[in-house]
């Protein structure tokens, strides 16, 4: 019975893996096809699409633009998110739950609704569409993810660590810098990677709050309107490899630090 369960389980697992990976593999394969028409059969292979995107100023520019937005919005959300986590975790005050709920809200509001709301709010405040507005919207959207991850980590920090630092002469600020922050690093790093990827991936907010400069997803969307091209597959493949590499590295780093910090 045990072995039959194992077979069923592993079949389900591999079916799921195939379900996820077949589209990705197809996408990658089509990026090397020597024809503008996407689909089988593939008669000959080429690197032309990769060469063409690397020589396309617009694509390179939007790629850099997306990364810049991702970095700045991540920095902002990490600082604010960690700050909120430290204020909320382990504290009891009247109205804690509503405050926590409000903090979570930006992550739950559908993208399209928050994008429109941001657009209206930005106009009302007199903020021009463009990089600043996109960074602002991405940062607000990402704060809850940082807060939740950091709060979870913070809740496992033994209280005696803080007390020991105070006991040995550190004031609350020094204790935070020397003890709490190093303990939070794996969580902050994990949250940062997640924020970077969320921001890099975002289309709706960037579309509604952007000016004539397009982020990568917005550019791909624009390219799609003039027809599907293997160029898009090539861009997507590069983005996939980059994000996967960052994700795997972050996961390994977090696991290693978690293990080191365990006593």
């Amino acid at each position: 019975m045990v072995s039959r369960n194992r077979i069923i389980l592993s079949c389900t697992y591999w079916a799921f893996v195939l379900y996820i990976f077949i589209p990705l593999i197809l996408m990658i394969v089509m990026g090397f096809k020597d024809s503008k028409f996407i689909g089988f059969p593939i008669k000959s292979w080429t690197f032309d699409w990769y060469i063409s995107i690397f020589s396309d100023y617009e694509i390179i520019y939007s790629f850099g633009y997306s990364i810049l937005i991702a970095i700045f919005s991540t920095l902002i959300s990490v600082i604010i998110g960690t700050w909120i986590a430290v204020l909320l975790e382990g504290r009891k005050f009247w109205g804690w739950s509503p405050v926590f709920g409000l903090m979570i809200l930006p992550a739950l509001v559908p993208g399209i609704i928050s994008a429109i709301a941001f657009r209206i709010y930005a106009r009302w405040l007199g903020i021009e569409p463009g990089m600043g507005a996109i960074i602002w919207a991405h940062a607000v959207h990402n704060v809850p993810f940082v807060t939740i991850v950091v709060m979870a980590r913070l809740s496992t920090l033994p209280k005696s660590q803080i007390e020991a630092a105070r006991d040995l002469g550190a004031d609350p600020l020094l204790t935070f810098i020397r003890i709490t922050l190093p303990y939070l690093i794996p969580a902050i790093l994990g949250a940062s990677i997640f924020c970077l990827l969320l921001s890099f991936d975002d289309f709706v907010r960037s579309f509604f709050l952007g000016d004539y400069n397009a982020t990568l997803p917005v550019l791909i969307f624009a390219m799609l309107r003039s027809g599907m091209s293997p160029e898009i597959n090539a861009i997507a493949t590069i983005a996939l490899i980059l994000t996967a590499a960052i994700g795997i590295w972050a996961e390994r780093f977090t696991r290693k630090t978690n293990k080191d910090n365990k006593i």
Partner: peptide, 14 residues
């Protein structure tokens, strides 16, 4: 001018 040895030692892991 007082120091404490904690029950779980509270050594700083990092």
């Amino acid at each position: 001018q007082v120091n404490m040895v904690f029950q779980d030692y509270a050594l700083f892991p990092h």
